[in-house]
């Protein structure tokens, strides 16, 4: 992702856009808009669930993950995951 928007707000796709099949090691996610299937591991499912509660900046999301999912980590690492998810179209990064 370009650095044009240094601290974007991340939006989850509308409800029912993503179909999810939990497999043993990974989750298979089907995106109804793109027709793409993604095989993802933690923390991606948790990030998507946490974001479904409403748009959030990386810092806000960090807090949500810690409070609701007991997932701790580096903010930089979370930003990197979010950038990957935005590149896949699974989240939408919007400038403030």
């Amino acid at each position: 992702m370009p650095d044009a928007a240094p601290d974007p707000v991340y939006h989850a796709p509308p409800a029912a856009t993503l179909l999810r099949t939990p497999l043993d090691l990974l989750d298979a996610i089907y995106d109804r808009r793109s027709g793409l299937t993604h095989l993802v591991g933690e923390p991606v499912p948790a990030i998507l669930d946490a974001l479904a509660a409403g748009p959030a900046s990386a810092a806000d999301l960090m807090q949500r993950l810690a409070d609701d999912y007991a997932i701790e980590g580096e903010l930089a690492a979370l930003r990197a995951r979010l950038a990957e998810l935005a590149a896949l179209g699974l989240v939408d990064a919007r400038a403030l």
């Binding site: 109804r32 808009r33 793109s34 027709g35 935005a86 179209g89 939408d92 990064a93």
Partner: peptide
């Protein structure tokens, strides 16, 4: 649906 999504990704 996939073609329209491609347009959305270009827009983003």
């Amino acid at each position: 649906r996939r073609a329209v999504w491609e347009a959305e990704m270009a827009r983003r």
